[in-house]
Design a protein around this nucleic acid. Sequence first.
DNA 1: GCAGATTACGTGCAGGCTGTATGGACATCA
DNA 2: TGATGTCCATACAGCCTGCACGTAATCTGC
Lengths: 210, 210
Amino acid sequence: MESTSSKHAQRSQATRAALVTAARQLFAERGYAGVGTEEIVRAAGVTRGALYHQFRDKADLFDAAVQAVEAEVTQRIATQVLATAADPVQALQAGARAFLDIFAEPELERILLLDAPGVLGWQRWREIGADHGLGVITATLEAAIAAGALASQPVRPLAHLLLGALDEAALMVAHAEDPEATRAEMAAALERLLEGLLAPRGTETSDSAP
Amino acid sequence: MESTSSKHAQRSQATRAALVTAARQLFAERGYAGVGTEEIVRAAGVTRGALYHQFRDKADLFDAAVQAVEAEVTQRIATQVLATAADPVQALQAGARAFLDIFAEPELERILLLDAPGVLGWQRWREIGADHGLGVITATLEAAIAAGALASQPVRPLAHLLLGALDEAALMVAHAEDPEATRAEMAAALERLLEGLLAPRGTETSDSAP
DNA sequence: GCAGATTACGTGCAGGCTGTATGGACATCA
DNA sequence: TGATGTCCATACAGCCTGCACGTAATCTGC
């Protein structure tokens, strides 16, 4: 019985979806503090009563919007990378480039990189990311280690470092006067960083027991 | 003396300082949105009238607080690094460790890394950082290139990537269940990242212990 | 050293925004 | 069919920010 959708549940889900869609749009355009709940519900075609019935508070709605955007971004990156992923190393390089491409839209940057940490807190922010962007990076790094392209090492710390670098790179591109040139610059710098990391230093660590 | 400091200017500076000090403390403790102007002026021993005379709005006061904290952090890192800086490479490594040490205080993390980007916007945030943390990294990287320890390349992109990685590392340490262990983990990962970057390709890297 | 101008600050007010309490409409179930 | 719970609309209270206006202290020109 996939989705028992009683009429109540159906209606609930519809208004939830309408609210999240409207919130996504508006928060992305003008930031969390820049848009009030009244405007959101008007755009969604419901009232504030519905909002506070479906969500604990404004931040809870923002949380749902962030999840939706994260999921879509990860989806887009994954497909874009899978198209050119021969081996884990190329996947990392392609992933970095796709990341910069996608965050060219300044709306994503606003909601995911600028407001989310402050509104949701870092813990919750990365908790959401763990199911999406951070998870993809971690998996790819593990694949690279398994393939012998990367020295065996703890992947979680490295994944976070790379994600931090990627976030900053995306923000630079998004705010650059010449986004095209900056994107190329950042991609080159990222490539150098990854190359230094991936270069097997004389020894091929084939495998190690976990 | 050089500063004629009329009584007006003197008094202005005093209230400004009192406001910035109080704001720093409170914003660091409970975040930008979590503390109102009334509480700040009470802690500073002035009234809201004084605040809005000295600063354009609440965000402007926050800006001043961020500047103060940034300056102090950079100062602390600089002295801590200069104590052990033999060459640019060691300066980078020492700087990274000092960064993690100092951001162990969760209050710095709150005001500088979580709230600042959202409240001030990324442009203004990095504009402040350019005079402090980002500037130090850039200078050190240029020194490393001049010393031949790093391949000649654009430093600004690389400096941003490293700062992004450092910020994320600091946030991880600040929120870890076991900060000591996490700090060691992140320091190790950062060291690997820097080593791969600094190793000039072509010269055999003298062995590094597995 | 005094009158007017400027600076620094105190206070009351209006507008907006969030969260909650209350009531009604509709679906589900006995 | 009546009872009950879900979903939602609306009115209200509280808080907070920014501004207008008033006041006292300081500076300037004579």
